[in-house]
């Protein structure tokens, strides 16, 4: 009977440091096919190892970073990119949060700039007024004086 897991295979031998740095950098940008939002450089899955081996192979063949990214996108679609490309509708993902922060800051600034106008008018002290008019309280105060 065979096991439930893929037999562990070591990755292919690392390349020269400069090239290997590119392999790891590209590996961080590509999503592992069998994991949950983990890059192929970070995942211990055999599928991720196989994909990282492929990145290493393509780097050693002298392919450019863009060619290697294109190779994976051609197979797994844009899904494979952990960072969506900066184009078209994807800009919303990049700029949406910034717009929200800017909008929030704008609202806060407006509130800070005009506090006396609104704050001065509404919180007219409501408690002392009825007390002052209360005849019993006035009587008690007179007694105490």
């Amino acid at each position: 009977m065979t096991g439930q897991y893929a037999p562990q295979q070591a990755g292919s031998d690392p390349l020269a440091p400069a090239l290997e740095a590119r392999v790891q950098k590209l590996g961080k940008e590509l999503r592992c096919a069998v994991c949950q939002g983990v890059s192929i450089a970070d995942s211990p899955a055999s599928m991720a190892r196989a994909q990282l081996d492929m990145v290493r192979e393509l780097v050693s063949q002298g392919k450019s970073d863009q060619e290697i990214i294109d190779y994976f996108v051609a197979r797994y679609g844009e899904w494979v990119l952990l960072e969506p490309t900066r184009e078209g509708f994807n800009w919303l993902v990049w700029l949406g949060p910034l717009l929200l922060v800017a909008g929030g800051a704008f609202v806060i600034l407006r509130q800070i700039k005009q506090p006396p106008a609104s704050a001065g008018a509404t919180p007219a002290p409501p408690t002392p007024a009825p007390e002052a008019e209360d005849p019993y309280l006035q009587a008690v105060r007179r007694e105490l004086e």
Binding site: Q9, A33, V34, M47, A50, Q51, D53, M54, E57, R75
Partner: peptide
């Protein structure tokens, strides 16, 4: 070996 062909075919499991 090394699942080259599998990755070439876009196998995801």
């Amino acid at each position: 070996p090394r699942s080259r062909v599998s990755v070439d075919y876009g196998v995801a499991g």
